[in-house]
Design a protein around this nucleic acid. Structure first.
Length: 465
DNA sequence: ATGTCC
């Protein structure tokens, strides 16, 4: 593999057969990922119909088929493919940020009670029940088609929330008929739950503002209390990915498609299997949005009761999704896996009041480190995409071996960060040093011209999945 | 990420 540094934050992997396009990785030398992740960029570059380049974001690391932090677009009318590995198992995993009408000083006297209420109001952990007990598949069908809109229609939220969600709260084209019975069974029990792993609900404070005008437009000011929710589509999305990878693995033979890694199973976007996956994926995306909407409502109740404060939605955006988008007059299937859409100012898909400022992007740090609010920039690369988080450097196993959950919690609480966990093991697996430095990832993203900084948020309390 | 293997 021939890696050429083009700028301080951009490396090119020269195209050589069977690559159809070059690789472009937006990293600094310090953030250069393991060889396996770069090899995955190369593998993705061989996919039928891929255009531009196979991209890697600054938080790039090894994943299932595609790297996490990978962006790839295929030309639908030129036999371009869709690959479930380009979205990942946690379909539509994403982040929502809410801003409280409250300064962090006002929170101090009620913080313990607030954290206890959020702890009780946030279903989480492996398996388990959600905040909604769906009576049956008919109700789930509406969640899958209508996403956050269904939650709001059912009284869980305000109309304005939907203006501040990607796709106004529901991805079009959801096809519940493509969601298997097992995915349905798993989905019925988990609507409105956080999950586990790196998913969390965090109470944060705005510590620094880099762009006053954009921050004000997003509804953010210095010292303000915020709530960040990071979660996905739970077992439902996972099962959909499993089912459709299996189906494509068989079907791709009929389309004469060969890939260097079986985990890159794919079929043309414009095929029954391709449309089937995208329909099921959209349904999972809507499930994820309903999930975040319901969790946000639970947080609103706690804030209202304990602090008399209201929470306004800043935005809700996914970082694991494939979307058919128009770029330079072509219909492209843009896969973003561990990569966040970052629309530039004046993009037609932005809500009117945000149009001059670009799309809000949220980068969750790890427990105990900062999170960032970013915005899209004109001329953004990689089909308007940027990073999504810190990115792991240690496996879960490595992380849990070197730290205990109790020790970690004591360390965080010693620094004034309240912790409400769901399992000690899960807590240990998420220790901050298991991740890259989120400050460096964001600096590289800005340096590479993928986005710009709006605000930095610090954790006050974390409800951990 | 995930009822961490049907």
């Amino acid at each position: 593999m021939k890696l050429v540094q083009e700028t301080p934050f951009r490396f090119r992997i020269e195209r050589q057969a069977p690559m159809r396009v070059p690789g472009v990785v937006f990293v600094s030398r310090d953030l250069m990922p393991e060889e396996q992740a770069l090899q995955q960029i190369v593998n993705v570059a061989t996919l039928p119909g891929i255009v531009g380049a196979s991209y890697g974001m600054p938080d790039l690391h090894w994943g299932y088929g595609f790297p996490i932090g990978g962006v790839a677009a295929t030309d639908v009318s030129a036999g371009g493919v869709v690959s479930p590995g380009g979205v990942g198992f946690d379909i539509s995993c994403g982040v929502r940020l809410l801003a409280a009408d409250l300064h962090r000083e006002g929170l101090v006297p009620v913080m313990d009670r607030l954290m206890d209420d959020l702890d009780a109001a946030t279903p989480r952990g492996l398996g388990g029940g959600g905040v909604w007990r769906l009576p049956g598949p008919a109700q789930l069908d509406r969640v899958l088609r209508e996403g956050a809109c269904f939650a709001v229609r059912a009284g869980h939220g305000e109309a304005r929330d939907l203006d501040r969600c990607e796709d106004q709260g529901a991805v079009a084209g959801a096809d519940p008929g493509q969601v298997g019975t097992r995915a349905v069974e798993r989905g019925l029990l988990q609507v409105g739950s956080l999950g586990s792993g790196n998913h969390f609900l965090e109470v944060q404070a705005v510590e620094e503002i880099y762009d006053e005008a954009v921050a004000a437009a997003f509804g953010l000011r210095l010292g303000q209390v915020c709530v960040m929710i990071h979660c996905g589509s739970r077992g439902l999305g996972h099962q959909i990915c499993t089912d459709h990878v299996r189906a494509m693995d068989k079907a791709m033979i009929d389309y004469g498609i060969g890939v260097p890694d079986r985990q890159l199973a794919c079929v043309p976007v414009d095929s029954p299997e391709g449309r089937g996956y995208l329909g099921a994926m959209a349904a999972a995306a809507n499930y994820g949005r309903a999930n975040r909407q319901l969790l946000a409502e639970a947080a609103r109740r706690a804030f209202r009761q304990v602090a008399g404060a209201a929470l306004a939605l800043v935005y809700d955006v996914s970082h694991n999704l494939a979307k058919v988008e128009e770029h330079d007059g072509r219909r492209l299937c843009v896969h973003r896996k561990g990569a966040t859409r970052a629309l530039p100012p004046h993009h037609p898909d932005l809500p009117a009041d945000l149009a001059p400022f670009g799309q809000p992007v949220f980068i969750p740090g790890t427990m105990g480190t900062a999170s960032y609010v970013l915005t899209g920039v004109p001329g953004g690369h990689a089909f308007h995409s940027t990073c999504h988080g810190a990115g792991r450097v240690q496996s879960r196993h490595q992380a849990a071996r070197s730290t205990s959950g109790r020790e970690l919690r004591a360390r965080l609480e010693g620094r004034g960060i309240a912790v409400r966990g769901s399992s000690w093991r899960g807590l240990a697996e998420e220790k901050p040093d298991a991740y890259k430095d989120v400050d460096a990832v964001v600096a590289a993203s800005v340096g590479a011209g993928l986005c710009r900084m709006v605000a930095r948020l610090v954790p006050l309390g974390v409800v951990k999945g």
